[in-house]
Design a protein around this nucleic acid. Structure first.
Length: 293
DNA sequence: TAGCCGTGGAA
DNA sequence: TTTCCAAGGCT
């Protein structure tokens, strides 16, 4: 495990030269608002940044401010979210927009603890906004950073998320200055995304291999964590229903929903969940549609 | 706290 | 083709 000084010495030059540089992502452009950064981070939760980028650009053009998103019809929001997955994130983001617009007069909080109180904003996203937009000195721990830090300490991979321990371990690697600390955080994420990957780490090109407890070792075979199946699950059914409603012009009768899944019991369950989640509404005749509010 | 919440790119 | 898993959050 390197000291914070050594880590910065090795990592930052690598980041300048080899990393994505940090300026190819549209939300990294100079002048992106705090709200724009927040939106990008929520969209990037469990969705690859390459798929997020085009959606983010359309989204921010259409709804530049929290007030704009707050005022939008939820059906429009869900259609613009398109197929990024986990559409409840879109709902939470709109709710977040309402709170920022009303309670915070349209300006995104800068304090991580305050950000965490917003819907859909957890420890990672709060830290990301506070650090990447506001320049706070604070650890930013995503799945990449957890893995990199775990490997520096000699483990093959990070275990179950233990937020406090992860934050402390990462904090210890940050340099004193806030600006340098922020760069180290982005660089750690980049290192995990590009070099210290989950399945095939490239220790040969890693700038901190010499200080790494795991460098050169083999990843044990098999999944690092228990994997959730998708095909045939409730999530799958929900996804099919949402796709149908996104693509529909207007309210849809139950018969058309029945056509997307053979098991009507699963369909019943999924539909009532979606309604309860606020992702699906019904019109006066009992047909189904994206939420009208 | 472990399981749930979508979708698709990459190998 | 199948499997893995992705800039996580919520309960």
């Amino acid at each position: 495990m390197p000291t914070s000084e050594v880590l910065s010495e090795r990592l930052l030059p690598w980041f300048e030269d080899q990393g994505r540089g940090g300026d190819d992502l549209p939300w990294r452009q100079e002048g992106t608002t705090a709200w724009g950064v927040l939106v990008s981070e929520v969209m990037s939760q469990q969705t690859q940044v390459a798929r997020v980028a085009p959606v983010w650009e359309r989204w921010m053009r259409r709804w530049p401010t929290p007030a704009d998103l707050a005022a939008a019809p939820t059906a429009d929001v869900l259609r613009e979210w398109d197929r990024m997955g986990y559409p409840r994130r879109a709902l939470r983001l709109q709710e977040c927009a309402r709170i920022v617009a009303e309670k915070y007069d349209g300006s995104v909080p800068s304090d991580p603890a305050e950000l965490e109180r917003l819907p859909g904003i957890g420890v990672y996203t709060a830290a990301a906004v506070a650090v990447f937009h506001y320049g706070a000195r604070h650890p930013v721990v995503d799945t990449n950073v957890r893995r990199v830090v775990a490997r520096l300490g000699g483990a093959a991979d990070a275990g179950t998320a233990t937020t406090k321990a992860d934050l402390a371990a990462t904090e210890a690697l940050l340099p004193d200055g806030a600006e340098a600390a922020a760069r180290v955080s982005v660089a750690l994420m980049e290192l995990g995304a590009l070099v210290c990957t989950a399945r095939k780490p490239e220790c040969g090109v890693c700038p901190v291999a010499a200080e790494c407890g795991f460098a050169g070792q083999e990843i044990p075979p098999g999944p690092s964590r228990k994997r959730q199946r998708y095909t045939g699950t409730n999530r799958h059914v929900r996804g099919e229903v949402m796709k149908l409603l996104r693509d529909a012009d207007g309210p849809v009768p139950r018969e058309r929903i029945d056509a997307v899944w053979p098991d009507s019991r699963m369909l019943d369950e999924a539909i009532s969940q979606l309604i309860s989640d606020g992702l699906v509404g019904t019109d006066e005749s009992g047909q189904f549609e994206l939420p009208s509010a």
